[in-house]
Amino acid sequence: MTTRREFLGNAGAMGAATFVGGGRIASAEAGRPGPDPGAELRARNTIFAVDTDTRTNYDALRAELIRRLGPVIVVENDYRGGRYTLVHHGEREAEHPVSEVFELAKSIAHAPLGIYSILAPYLSRHIPDLPNAARLDRHDVNMVAFIGPGTTDWLGPLQAFAATLATARQQLGTAHLPPELEASSARILDASLGFIDESVGRRHFDMTSFERFAGALTEDIGVNIAAAAQAQIEGVEDLMRRWRDRIGEPDWPGLYVVVLSIWTTSALNQNSIIVKRLLDPAQADSHLIDLPTAQPPADPVFVALDNLARIVQDNVAAELVFPLDRRPADALKGPEDLLAQEILHQLACPHRGRLAARRTPDAAS
């Protein structure tokens, strides 16, 4: 594929010859060379080279800096409460600090969501008069209910999920869960199995019946969420205290924590909330980095360190490149694009259209 610069280089190599209708354009004055139509393109190519070399040098700095970062803790949000990796003095140590109670409590609480995931494509696109009807986006419902209620193909998958739920219910007593968590989990599983039995027997379900089933479980799901939160807090706090002793009090303020999560859990992420309380208060806002991703990366630690290297080197560059203006310096140091404020300023200008027209040369001139 021809790149822009290859095109510019090829166009510049045409030299002074320009063809119109197969004939060479004559010079304005006989015996004198005409204007070089490739000169502008070649000049622009040399200007593009400034940015190419800048990016090359920037990338070289980042690659070297990645090897020297530390101390850093990389947190991968996962179904087990988070995988924590400490990078310190060139060594790495990884651990899942949260007990299994976290995953067990959430697993049972997910039962209504599991049922919904099977039934959603077969919902009617008609939104009934539900208490939260105004919060349902009609277009979203239309996209999720892409099959509709005209078939019972959901029966097989729903019965298969019921078998999974029934097995969990039978074994619940031997899982040695805390008594309150065991009781709420039993009620969630019993209600889920009851809803499935009723729906399979009627060969029918709808939003109203599902909401009636799920709404009755609000309190029990809350108990499971509370148990999961307690397990996560205790596990993360214990690990952070141990790693703080290892890093040492003098180096602790310089610790960076990079938390990777998918976008849907990136705001008020549970690991970020717990960790922030344990960082040096003066550095917590700048040294805790929430990094949303489209999906969990293949190498989370490298992705975290690569992004952190950009942040660290930009923190220094911002103050040196923009020593007299804090606005662009703050933009370069943070997630804001450097052009954002100027674009907002120009878009807010009521005379922007007239100014643009005034800057545009008259086509006839």
Rank of each mutant, 00 (worst) to 15 (best):
P149I: 02
T360A: 14
L41K: 02
Q295V: 09
Q341N: 10
F205W: 03
H287M: 11
A318P: 03
T54F: 04
G173N: 12
H345S: 14
V74M: 10
E219D: 05
V303P: 02
L86M: 01
F102K: 02
A166V: 04
R242V: 08
H139R: 14
A317P: 01
F195N: 07
L130A: 10
P37A: 12
A17S: 09
A11G: 00
P179E: 12
T56G: 15
L239I: 06
I66W: 01
N315Y: 03
D251S: 12
S184E: 12
D238C: 03
A282H: 03
L104F: 13
G31P: 06
L338I: 13
L324N: 12
V259I: 04
V257L: 00
I188D: 08
N77S: 13
P300A: 09
G353P: 08
A109S: 03
P323G: 09
A49M: 00
E93G: 12
E93A: 15
D206P: 01
A318S: 09
I289V: 12
R44L: 15
E91I: 05
P97H: 03
A183M: 05
A49N: 00
F48I: 10
V303N: 05
I66D: 14
E180K: 03
C349Y: 06
G194H: 00
I147Y: 04
G38D: 05
M207E: 05
R327F: 04
G70E: 11
Q313A: 07
R327Q: 11
H88Y: 11
T293V: 15
I343E: 01
L338D: 05
A43T: 14
A227H: 09
V144A: 09
S272P: 00
V303I: 11
E211C: 06
E95M: 14
P296G: 07
L177P: 04
L324T: 12
T208L: 13
A43M: 13
G235Q: 04
L136R: 03
M240A: 09
A186D: 13
G22A: 11
P253A: 08
L123I: 11
A191F: 00
P335Y: 10
I247W: 03
L305K: 01
S107T: 08
H126F: 10
A145V: 11
A340F: 02
I73M: 13
V50Y: 02
I225W: 03
A94F: 06
R67E: 15
G90E: 00
R202K: 10
V141Q: 00
T293Y: 08
D306S: 14
D238W: 01
H89R: 14
P149E: 04
N307V: 12
L278I: 02
D299K: 10
L308M: 09
R169S: 13
G21K: 00
Q230C: 07
A318C: 10
Y84Q: 13
S199A: 15
Q341Y: 07
L130D: 11
G9Q: 04
F302I: 03
L324A: 15
L324W: 04
L255F: 06
L193K: 05
Q341R: 11
P328V: 02
T208C: 07
H110G: 10
A231N: 07
A162R: 05
L158S: 08
V74P: 12
A331V: 01
F210L: 14
A231C: 12
A183G: 04
L65E: 07
A231V: 09
F210Y: 12
L69P: 02
W252H: 05
P35N: 05
T85S: 15
I25P: 07
L347V: 03
D299P: 06
